[in-house]
Design a protein around this nucleic acid. Structure first.
Lengths: 204, 204
DNA sequence: CAAGATCCGTACCGATCGGTTACATTTTCC
DNA sequence: GGAAAATGTAACCGATCGGTACGGATCTTG
């Protein structure tokens, strides 16, 4: 069962084949952090579930926080991939782009394993502005805010800053609320209609 | 500096003067949990900052989780107090009630010490459905959802369930987003206008 | 004041936290 | 095959985690 090195996106393969343990650690940590929370998961649990040992973790990551930062940065990439995917589906139509994003978001939010946005959750777990997990999350949210405001400009909103912030409120609302209700009947389903109504209200 | 027992709302004073240590522990834990997160705060830090000792904590609370549950229940009381306050300000006018609530929420969300809803944060910190902190938070959110849907009925919404869920999305969006941006220019400020537009859109 | 109830602190417990050491073993590539 | 790189083994570290046994201090009440 020797896996090759180029079939999955790896984050650090310095020379030649690159480490296989680092990849398993990274993916295991990403899943555990999302499912159980970052603070709730210890390094021992990570290496145990990854089938590796602790020194392997600290050979690839300087500290647990360093691993946390790496995971959150990949989460951020995944977010922008989905966001751009909605954009690419409707070129030149920012309104349809946002509706498409909310439709995808609402679809993803149903399902018992959904736990909202890992970046928002990390910001909740790390209130300290100096913590790297907090910094990555906060920087991402500021980028998102600007991007949504730019979208509102494209839509010709009368007050694009406000409409952008409203969209952000709605997105974060879906993130947080979706992990607090079981089953398929989640408030997130109402977000698609809400974004349509809001865009209509803010774009004359 | 012997404080009396009736000047502040106490939660357990079995006989006579009641314990003074339990009150300090409770208030200290409430503040620390909110500021730094629940998992980030150990019992040693609580008793240390409260100026008492650890056995005093475990004489009044069966465990840390028991203290967490007690704190979250008081937080829930505080939420409903603010919610009813907005209701009482505009009797018989559910639309004005909700606008008033969002105005108060937006006003509270500015300020560097604001960290959103402690119950929502607790749900993020405790994904395990069996954990008492999670159970208290989730039960509260379900009550809130029903209450908002009932408000939408009062407003004469065409689809009250959807409008109620939209209001919930907006509230949670304010909670989460307000702790991810510094300064006074927060997305929460846009929530008041958004709720007006949404109510108008969903109530013919 | 003394007795008894009530409250509280000192010291300690095993377990786990994030992190490290030195060395043996395996894997990869030429 | 042999050197180099990657991983495993096993033990260990100080600090902190949530939680407790036990005795001393304090307060109310006769």
């Amino acid at each position: 069962m020797t896996k090759t090195d180029a079939d999955t996106p790896l984050h650090l393969q310095p020379y030649g084949p690159g480490p296989r343990a680092a990849e398993k650690i990274f993916e295991t940590a990403r899943d555990l952090f999302y499912r159980e929370g970052i603070r709730a998961v210890g390094v021992d649990e990570i290496v145990s579930k990854a089938g590796v040992t602790k020194p392997s973790l600290y050979r690839s990551f300087k500290s647990k926080d360093d691993l946390v930062a790496a995971v959150l940065r990949e989460v951020e990439e995944g977010f922008w991939d989905r966001f751009r995917s909605a954009e690419d589906a409707f070129p030149g139509d920012p309104r349809a782009q946002m509706i498409a994003y909310f439709e995808g978001l609402a679809a993803r939010s149903v399902g018992d394993d959904y736990r909202g946005c890992a970046l928002s959750n990390a910001a909740v777990e790390y209130p300290d502005r100096q913590h790297v997990g907090r910094m990555v999350s906060q920087a991402h949210k500021e980028q998102l805010r600007e991007r949504l405001r730019a979208k509102a400009v494209e839509m010709g909103a009368s007050d694009p800053k406000v409409l952008g912030d409203v969209l952000l409120l709605l997105i974060e609302g879906v993130f947080t609320s979706s992990q607090m209700f079981d089953g398929d009947d989640k408030p997130a389903m109402a977000s698609v209609g809400a974004v349509k109504a809001l865009i209509a209200a803010y774009c004359p």
